[in-house]
Simulated scan of single mutants.
Amino acid sequence: MSDILNLDAEVRTDLGKGASRRLRHANKVPAILYGAGQEPVSLTLAHNKVFRAQEEEAFYSQVLTLNVDGKAVEVIVKDMQRHPFKPLVMHVDFLRVDAKQEIHTNIPVHFVNEEALNKAGAVITHHVNEIEVSCLPKHLPEFIEVDLADVEVGQTLHLTDVALPKGVTSVELAKGESHDIAIVSANAPKASASEDTESADDAAGEEEATEE
């Protein structure tokens, strides 16, 4: 995990599309570092290190350490551009982190204890895969767990039903009750076509018996 959360970077002064193209040919990734009231800095990182890191969930949700020319800078990933079909990272935006200032970022959701609902035949629908939160860097969770152990068939969990970690608040709920979005639903299984036909036949039979 340390290799994922710690990356070496170099300041670059050769800017522009041509420079970025040359960097990519040299297996480097162009990047930008900004925020915390400081000037933006253009960077370059080794592509193999970034590509390996971006395969891990923590890369997007945790505070990373960039070693910029030997100086450690705490950051989070704000944006990343990938090649449309090649396994290449084209560009990364890093946001500086201030330990005393709250940050807004998206945290992945992990759904647990779905087994009972699956056995009951429920059709489980995940409406979101991540939740936007606000918190100090020290409270930033790696993921948010949504427990379905007590959920019943036909029930939908909303954002207000999710227990967020200490020090973490929902950006959506801060906007008002109308933003209490659905997180996951456990819907009753739909009857098959044959079952629907049998039910219709039974109903028709009962109606004919009544008329007689």
Rank of each mutant, 00 (worst) to 15 (best):
F143R: 15
R96F: 02
H158A: 04
S61C: 02
A19M: 06
T210P: 02
P87K: 10
V184G: 01
T156E: 02
H179T: 14
Y34M: 11
L15E: 11
H127N: 06
E56I: 00
H126S: 04
K17Q: 08
H83D: 11
G70S: 09
D180L: 06
V171E: 03
R12L: 05
D3G: 08
I181D: 10
D93S: 02
P141H: 00
Y60H: 12
V184I: 05
E57N: 13
I76A: 02
S42R: 15
H104V: 12
G176C: 07
P108H: 00
L66I: 13
N129G: 09
V63L: 03
V89L: 12
N106C: 04
H110C: 09
N6R: 05
L140E: 02
A53V: 04
L164F: 07
K28D: 12
L88F: 06
E102D: 05
A174V: 12
E56F: 11
A163M: 08
V50I: 13
V146A: 01
V184K: 00
N113L: 05
Q38R: 11
I144P: 10
A19L: 01
F94Y: 15
A186W: 01
P87D: 13
A53F: 08
V128R: 03
E74W: 01
A204S: 03
A188K: 14
Q155H: 03
